[in-house]
């Protein structure tokens, strides 16, 4: 039997993506749908997508031929939690920007990892608020020019992967848009993880970030990712000083814990036991 070939079109509604040319979101949409294909899904009927507001939130919605819920800015994770609690058998996947997930919506991310709700969050870190015109984000590297930090940024960026690891995620990884194969593998692992899983994808926004930050074109940005990426293992060997400005890529955690749904089922069992004695 001939193995079927991957075609992105099989998973899309046929609407045209709104991204600028050279935007990393194309690469990410492609990597995700390939991952889904390689996991053996011929369609997206076993998935529900939730996303907030921002360019990267458009990766699934309304473009994927699937159930998708486009929520208010920063609020995709609570909505995804509600879906997952009611329909634990579905793969509930969140896409969002660094502003959406690590800015306005950060507390939901931490609590989702803490309560180990079995959803997958893909955070597109383009280091900027792309859709609103390139303002500084909580992930913007120090001393970068953005539209709201015209004299360069003056705050330290947040390391979101380490944060979710601390909070209790069962899987966490970071890759960039130049690591297409690794990214795809990480996405597959995240989807298959039982428990909260998180992948940060460092991505290029040539229009709103690249230009102002002094990159001539997309190639230069990708070259910057390549030069600055170091593996988790390597990062452990070098000093903190040497680490500054680097993008640490790889897998940060893989573990198993009972999920939120497991815990709630246990509570239901206890409640029924107690009341049957009582009544």
């Amino acid at each position: 039997m001939m193995s079927e070939k991957f075609s992105m079109r099989n998973y899309l509604r046929g609407l045209k993506y709104p991204f600028c040319s050279g935007c990393g979101n194309f690469t990410i949409a492609n990597a995700f749908l390939r991952a889904v294909f390689e996991l053996g899904h011929k369609d997206l009927s076993k998935f529900v997508f939730c996303s907030g507001i921002g360019c990267s939130s458009w990766i699934p919605s309304p473009y994927f031929l699937a159930d998708s819920i486009h929520t208010p800015h920063g609020r995709s994770i609570p909505v995804a939690t509600g879906v997952k609690l009611m329909r634990p058998e579905l793969n509930v996947v969140v896409f969002g920007g660094d502003g959406d997930i690590a800015g306005i919506g950060l507390s939901h991310l931490i609590h989702a990892a803490r309560r180990n709700v079995d959803i997958t969050v893909f955070m597109v870190n383009n280091m900027v608020y792309g859709m609103t015109g390139g303002q500084v984000a909580p992930t913007t590297p120090l001393h970068m020019k953005t539209s709201s930090t015209p004299y360069t940024s003056f705050e330290y960026p947040i390391d979101v992967v380490n944060l979710v690891v601390e909070a209790g995620a069962c899987y966490a990884a970071r890759w960039t848009t130049i690591h297409q194969k690794e990214l795809r593998e990480a996405m597959k692992k995240a989807i298959l993880t039982r428990g909260f899983s998180f992948v940060e994808i460092v991505s290029q926004c040539p229009t709103m970030f690249g230009r102002r930050a002094g990159f001539k074109n997309v190639t230069e940005m990708l070259e910057w990712f390549r030069k600055n990426s170091i593996s988790v293992e390597e990062a452990e060997r070098i000093s903190e000083e040497e680490l500054s400005g680097k993008i640490v890529v790889g897998e940060f955690i893989r573990r198993t814990r009972p999920t939120l749904t497991d815990m709630i089922r246990e509570v239901m069992r206890k409640a029924k036991e107690e009341t049957s004695i009582e009544g």
Partner: peptide, 8 residues
């Protein structure tokens, strides 16, 4: 938000 997700 969670209630809205559950409703859907």
């Amino acid at each position: 938000g969670t209630a809205i997700g559950a409703s859907w």
